[in-house]
Design a protein around this nucleic acid. Structure first.
Length: 784
DNA sequence: TAGGATAACTTTTTT
DNA sequence: AGTTATCCTA
């Protein structure tokens, strides 16, 4: 602890020791950013600051947890715990709860996740009688989110000519009204969405100078991680909080700004030195993570971006292996190759599976990879996808809990009022909503006394409604005496959720039951750890607050759990992580860069940064791959290698294999290697040796006419007679004929059978093994 | 109103 | 491909 500063290089040390005013630390990939932040906090604690004086903001819960753990090691758990450390969303929701009544919210307001918020937007569009083709809920939600991230309230939106004009041109003139209604409905429901947490913090500070004054004074030191990912709302919070003491430490890397879709504004970091002229800039340029080849390759890529803070990232590690690029015919084959290489790394080079990560642009890509790994018996774990708390059965239980805490919560009410089924259908709920809108109360009030709110329902329905309200009230009473775990157990039983799931014999229902059990376990764990920290009576409200902002639960791991698995995740999720071996797959046009990004301003630059982030995750080996065809949205589509592959200086790349295209070529040529060679690649040479360029693709091959297979045989179709040859589409097929298949790549025909529509061939594919193809459907061409 | 069957749509990334 | 929305029937 005494000499921990000695472990830092001069640049890092300078950044840690400078505490005289605002500072900006530009921290290149792998430059020890987290280390500097944690050391700095330890340094501050050693120099007279109390833990509670310090607020340290991160973007992900994972980052917060990691930093918390590292600081615990330096200063002990007791002190570390008293730091204000966490995500923007979680820390400011805490402050908002404390100050809730100042901005007209109950202190136990609900937090709407994006699904809740989309449902509400959708409901409002419907209620307004608008066409949801014109007013797409997703787009409207994005517009509202964007407005909030830029601190534009509904009234400001209404008053903004530019926005209104834009909406008119986009043929959705009533967007601003939807925003107003959405805003009011959230308020009525006592609910905030993710963006509200930041926006209302700003509103709180704006409308209550005494509150701002208090926190400005309270936080003596403000630290922010990943500043390149802040949006305007976050930027303003930081700016205001640090205005008084001016002890601000902002860390970030403009080259790794990848969250603009969430409102992040790279200008926040690029322009910071203009906004705060006396801000002191520190640059961490030495990369401790990756080999020189990896760093150089990444640098050459990112240099193609226009706007960035100048810096020279370098590595003093060994030169290392070149990046290895391989192309394949299809996503299937790509996955196969990745699995094959991981196995080679494991068996031949002694790497653990846990040293390997497969990174992709979209979650949907994980399926194919998953299958390939499973076939080889390689352990893997997929991160992300839909989190535990987003599963239907979990959201159902949570909705009950949320409703108990905050009966005004509209989305939770709608979710469970008829689950399990109790005869309260859409029609009735529609009437309740109507009454809610006219009387200005919330759904639960209306439900408790439908007739009093002049809802036209019959006796039976009225009873169903009041019974439901009564049940929720009963749970509220239980919540006074029971802890969160005990209460939830009762809720699951008395709401009949348990019975409903038990009555379902399907396989999925079994896993739902297990998930509900797991939720109960998670709650109990929460209660127990709460007790350990001195909270005798852990409240349900605490659990819910925790859940809604905490991406996912860690699966319970004991000593029986296997820890040696390949990590599979999106590139976004990989940020901040590092692996010995990184596989970046699907480096194709329309995927990386994503086709969604291409017409966005600066969209392609952001995608390039994303690729940069992916490459810089690798310590030793970085494998790049693309496929020529890929299943997307249910059908196979031709793909071209990404433009970004050309952005990397080819001196740092070795081409392992590239498929000869069975489609027209996209004009990309890396040369080198035939498909057949790819199976022999198992050793990884460390030589620094650019591949010689070879002539590009061979001419286009003819494709059999798939829609109109010609009848070739005239004999009656005797079942699967063996044939020595079959003519098909004007070509002669016989044993030994080489073919190129759309998805399986190259192979040799080993057997032929059947005739006419029933004709089929057995093929041994070079990498994909033996397959039987029905000629009528198979998509292949002759090789040569 | 419930539940099944068909149609439609989706897909960028996450707090 | 897979999920979700909508429609239709009982």
């Amino acid at each position: 602890m005494e000499n921990y500063l000695d472990s830092l290089n001069p640049a890092q040390r300078a950044a840690v020791e400078y505490c005289d005013g605002p500072q900006l630390v530009i921290a290149g990939a792998g430059s020890g950013k987290t280390r500097v932040l944690t050391m700095k906090i330890a340094y501050l604690l050693q120099h007279g600051y109390e833990p509670s004086d310090i607020i340290a903001l991160t973007f992900t819960k994972k980052a917060a947890t990691e930093m918390q753990n590292r600081i615990q090691e330096l200063v002990g758990a007791g002190r570390a715990r008293r730091l204000w450390m966490g995500t923007f969303h979680s820390l400011f929701s805490r402050i908002l709860r404390r100050e809730a009544e100042r901005i007209g919210f109950p202190h136990d307001f609900t937090i709407y996740d994006q699904q809740d918020s989309r449902n509400l937007v959708k409901a409002i569009i419907k209620e307004m009688g608008l066409d949801d083709k014109q007013y797409k809920p997703n787009s409207i939600q994005a517009i509202i989110s964007n407005a909030k991230n830029n601190l534009v309230t509904p009234s400001m939106y209404m008053a903004n000519r530019e926005l209104i004009m834009y909406d008119q041109q986009a043929r959705r003139p009533r967007t601003s009204e939807i925003y107003v209604n959405y805003w009011n409905r959230c308020q009525q429901a006592g609910a905030m969405d993710f963006d509200d947490l930041l926006l209302y913090t700003n509103i709180l500070f704006r409308d209550h100078p005494d509150v701002l004054q208090f926190y400005q004074d309270y936080f003596k030191y403000v630290l922010v991680d990943e500043y390149q990912d802040t949006n305007r709302a976050q930027h303003m919070i930081v700016e205001q909080l640090s205005r008084q003491h001016r002890h601000l430490c902002v860390v970030g890397d403009d080259a790794q700004s990848i969250y603009s879709f969430r409102g992040a504004n790279i200008r926040n970091i690029l322009d910071l030195s203009k906004q705060i002229p006396d801000i002191k800039i520190f640059k961490l340029e030495q990369n401790y993570r990756s080999t020189q080849n990896i760093v150089d390759a990444a640098n050459s890529l990112i240099s193609k971006n226009r706007e960035q803070i100048r810096k020279t990232i370098f590595s003093q590690k060994e030169r290392g292996s070149l990046l290895r690029l391989s192309g394949s015919y299809s996503d299937l084959e790509e996955a196969y190759q990745v699995a094959q290489r991981i196995e080679a790394l494991h068996k031949q080079e002694g790497f653990h599976y846990a040293d390997c990560a497969v990174l992709y642009r979209t979650n949907a890509q994980s399926r194919t990879l998953e299958e390939a790994l499973r076939k080889r018996g390689i352990e893997y774990r997929i991160f992300g996808g839909l989190s535990f708390y987003q599963r239907k059965e979990i959201k159902d239980v949570l909705a009950y809990l949320r409703l108990i805490i905050n009966p005004a919560d509209e989305e939770s009410f709608k979710r469970v009022v008829n689950y399990p089924a109790r005869g309260i259908g859409d029609t009735t709920v529609g009437k309740l909503v109507e009454a809610m809108r006219t009387t200005g109360t919330n759904l639960f009030e209306v439900c408790s006394d439908p007739v009093g709110h002049s809802v036209a329902v019959n006796r039976g329905t009225e009873k169903k409604l009041t019974d439901f309200a009564q049940m929720i009230r009963h749970f509220q009473e239980l919540n006074q005496t029971l802890n969160a775990y005990e209460l939830t157990s009762r809720v699951v039983i008395e709401s009949c959720i348990k019975a409903d799931l038990a009555g379902d014999t399907s396989i999925e229902a079994k896993s739902r039951r297990e998930n509900v059990e797991e939720l109960l376990t998670a709650i109990q764990t929460f209660v127990i750890s709460g007790a350990e920290e001195g909270n005798e009576h852990t409240q349900l409200v605490d659990f819910l607050a925790d859940v809604s902002l905490s991406g996912d639960v860690e699966p319970n791991e004991d000593e029986n759990t296997n820890h040696d698995y390949v990590a599979m995740m999106t590139i976004h999720q990989a940020k901040g992580l590092e692996f010995q071996n990184v596989f970046i797959v699907g480096i194709e046009e329309d995927l990386l860069p994503s086709d969604m990004s291409i017409d966005e301003p600066n969209g392609v630059e952001e995608e390039r940064r994303l690729f940069y982030v992916a490459i810089t995750r690798a310590e030793q080996n970085c494998f790049l791959s693309y496929a020529r065809s890929r299943f997307r949205n249910g059908q196979s589509k031709a793909c071209r290698p990404s433009r970004f592959l050309k952005d990397i200086d080819q001196r740092f790349v070795q081409t392992l294999s590239s498929p000869t295209s069975s489609y027209g070529d996209g004009g990309f040529s890396t040369g080198g290697g035939t498909f057949g060679e790819s199976r022999t690649v198992g050793t990884f040479s460390n030589s620094y040796r650019p591949e010689p360029q070879r002539p590009a693709e061979q001419p286009r091959r003819s494709v059999l006419d798939l829609n109109h297979p010609r009848k070739v045989a005239t004999r009656p179709t005797d079942a699967l007679s063996h044939e020595t040859s079959i003519t098909f589409g004007g070509h002669l097929l016989e044993k030994g004929t080489r073919i190129v298949h759309d998805r399986f790549g190259k192979g040799t025909i080993t057997d032929l059978s059947g005739t006419a529509d029933n004709a089929r061939i057995n093929v041994h594919f070079d990498t994909m093994g033996d397959k039987t193809l029905l000629l009528k459907f198979a998509k292949f061409t002759l090789d040569k």
